[in-house]
Design a protein around this nucleic acid. Structure first.
Lengths: 230, 230
DNA sequence: AAAATAAATGTTATTTTGACACGAATAATA
DNA sequence: TATTATTCGTGTCAAAATAACATTTATTTT
């Protein structure tokens, strides 16, 4: 069997930008790199694509390694391919962003990787071009979430409207009119009101809602325009 | 210098989905592959990423090899990384789509590559997973063009409103109301009416327009909603 | 001069948006 | 027990955007 004998083979990696929301601010799960080069520096979670593995599986694999979670919402973002981005050896990296319910995160795993949830606004200097990846991920998340109801992936199964509002305000760094926002949200038919209330955050309590999965599947790729002039 | 010694290196390639519009239908520029495996089969234009080249430059390089054109609108689409997608040797391919003014490349069709413009609806079986790449490109083009004025990249410098209408109708395979469409289009401020008319397609003639590049640059990334419920 | 053709423009009802304010429920406090 | 404080949930209205629809205009051909 002839191969493409004259061509150069390159290391291929994946890096994950992992978003979480704790009810207050949007956060990223980052780690402290355990090996050279750049040992002990802050970094995104990543890994090399293995011989018989497709890249999306590599991404899912490293995400599971770190968090223990499977079937996570994950989207391919962009390839970072600057020849010198990794000074040790050329590596083409495929960036993925993931949205996880921060409460499902099992933090016993965080010791091995020395992982931490860090507010998006306080992300330190990361290795290589990882800060640039974070910027792109934030932009892409904003873009996509303005049109599609993906931010629910960051919330627990039961959530309240004030929580969603806070989430959107956090993602876009804006203040939204709660009346207009909840009108639009409810008009999508995505939400099913529950009988019980969350009494943690107010005296009156806020009704819990769950996602209507059927409608969610339908609407995940239709345009909803959640954000005015994004 | 230590390298990542235990990791596997992989061939990395780019493939280009090249769109053109001849006034009638949306077309793709495809070639007949000149080497084994799959010699003489229809294929997208592509090539391997070279040692010191970033992938977007590889894409621009192969596009120029084929068409002679530079500074073409091009966007990274998605990585195709199935381990067996190329049966000869594992190759991870980064797909790019390009929008070109077909008039700039139709008379000098490359004999070397045996290139042809083929209507999107008549694309034959292509090698590997290239048909899947085409499907994804079409979807992405529809998505993006519904929100951003990128289809102008397919038109010559001077164009008429009926031409744009035909283009949008071709891309989405729908019939649009020309009154509403042109009202929306003109309200963007993107178009500058010229003094002269195109008399090819009607007795009355249709005014030529040019893009207002300033406004174009501003609006290229803002949401315009050209297509109702895309 | 009349007919034919495609371009350009106008009207209106409906829907969606954005700006804005108040009553309801409940826990804490007096 | 009554009052206060707090957040939730909903309602109104004017303005803007949309979608559906028809007529006039410029020009060539007959």
């Amino acid at each position: 069997m002839t191969k493409y004998s004259k061509q150069t083979r390159i290391l291929v990696a994946v890096d994950c930008i992992i978003f979480g929301f704790d009810g207050d601010s949007l956060k990223l799960l980052i780690i402290q790199r355990g090996f050279e080069p750049e040992k002990n520096k802050w970094s995104l979670m990543g890994g090399f694509v293995e011989p018989s593995e497709k890249p999306e599986n590599s991404a899912a694999r490293v995400l599971k390694q770190l968090t223990g979670l499977e079937n996570v919402y994950m989207e391919q973002m962009e390839v970072f391919g600057e020849p010198k981005r990794d000074p040790l050896e050329r590596t083409v990296s495929i960036a993925y962003y993931a949205l996880i319910d921060i409460h499902k995160y099992k933090d016993q795993l965080s010791k091995e990787y020395r992982a931490e949830w860090v507010p998006l606004k306080e992300i330190p200097k990361l290795i290589f071009d990882h800060n640039s990846m974070v910027d792109h991920a934030k932009k892409k998340l904003r873009y996509k979430a303005a049109l599609h109801p993906i931010l629910f992936e960051l919330l627990p199964e039961k959530f309240t409207i004030p929580q969603i509002l806070t989430l959107y305000e956090g993602v876009y760094d804006i203040v939204l009119d709660k009346r207009n926002f909840s009108r639009k949200l409810l008009s999508t038919g995505l939400l099913m009101r529950q009988k019980d209330k969350d009494k943690e955050n107010s005296k009156k309590g806020a009704f819990y809602y769950k996602l209507n999965k059927e409608i969610y599947k339908d609407k995940i790729s239709s345009f909803l325009n959640f954000i005015p002039n994004p």
